[in-house]
Design a protein around this nucleic acid. Structure first.
Lengths: 137, 137
DNA sequence: TATAATTCATACTAAATAAGTAGGGATTAA
DNA sequence: TTAATCCCTACTTATTTAGTATGAATTATA
């Protein structure tokens, strides 16, 4: 799995926000309810999305979240990278670079690198807007 | 991670066999030694590769393994699917299909389906021969 | 100004998966 | 006959994923 629950939930959460963009700040409770996801779990995804500059927030009563940009300006790559940390399909490519001692002579590394590029290219090319309009293929 | 140690090891193992194809049956001990992988761990990958018809084996003393086809006829997709079980980038796509109750109405499913297709297409297009000749890009 | 609804922060727990070990049986060339 | 090999199954450990729990800080609103 390149993409775990964190990334999938984050995406659904941003889509929900996009679809309720006219309602001002939307509370996580509402989103979690609609999306049928644990409130407490989703709360943990927020800091990373905020750090990535994807959301405006309002604290306190009647607070909530709001997209900070037009929906066409969120790529899935950005969203998933923010929540997953990495989209690398093999361990060799993620975490710290000097991990694998075979790196230099490894015959398979070029394949992983290319696969990684293909995955990233695709996910970077699709935006929230595309998903909402179902222009994914 | 789409691809875990199992798949990476299996690939290296088949590459090693390809590069020693002129030596007849090659023992796992030799391969594991050269590739610096635990013999006992690699032994567990073999049944799946054999079941997939990728190898000829000889049991008993001076036995071992041998590729059963020309190197150009092994795609990485086949190798990795045999050892990993699935190459699906999200859980929604693998295991049993009726897993997710949101399946019907899910807005994100088309993206995962397309990503899955892209990954499979690439891995199915590269063969052991390509890797050996470093024609991966 | 009190209160209830919210975000925000941190720690903990449980479940699942990945990775590796271990022991020994079956087979067969030498 | 023996040593080297494949083959089979069970167990163990480490890592990651997923989810719970507690509660402090903030703020609109009654």
């Amino acid at each position: 799995m390149v993409i775990s629950t964190r990334g999938r939930y984050a995406l659904r959460l941003l889509l929900d926000l996009a679809e309720h963009a006219d309602e001002g700040f939307v509370s996580l409770k509402d989103i979690a309810g609609r999306q049928d996801i644990s409130l407490k779990y989703v709360e943990q995804l927020m800091p990373q999305l905020i750090a990535a500059g994807m959301l405006d927030t309002a604290r306190g009563k009647s607070g909530g979240y709001r997209l900070s940009r037009p929906v066409g300006e969120y790529s899935l790559g950005e969203i998933l990278r923010a929540t997953e940390g990495s989209l690398a399909p093999v361990k060799c490519l993620s975490t710290d670079e000097n991990l694998c001692p075979r790196k230099e002579k490894c015959e398979t590394l070029p394949v992983w690198t290319e696969l990684d590029r293909i995955i990233s290219d695709y996910l970077d090319s699709v935006t929230l807007k595309d998903v909402i309009e179902q222009k994914n293929q």
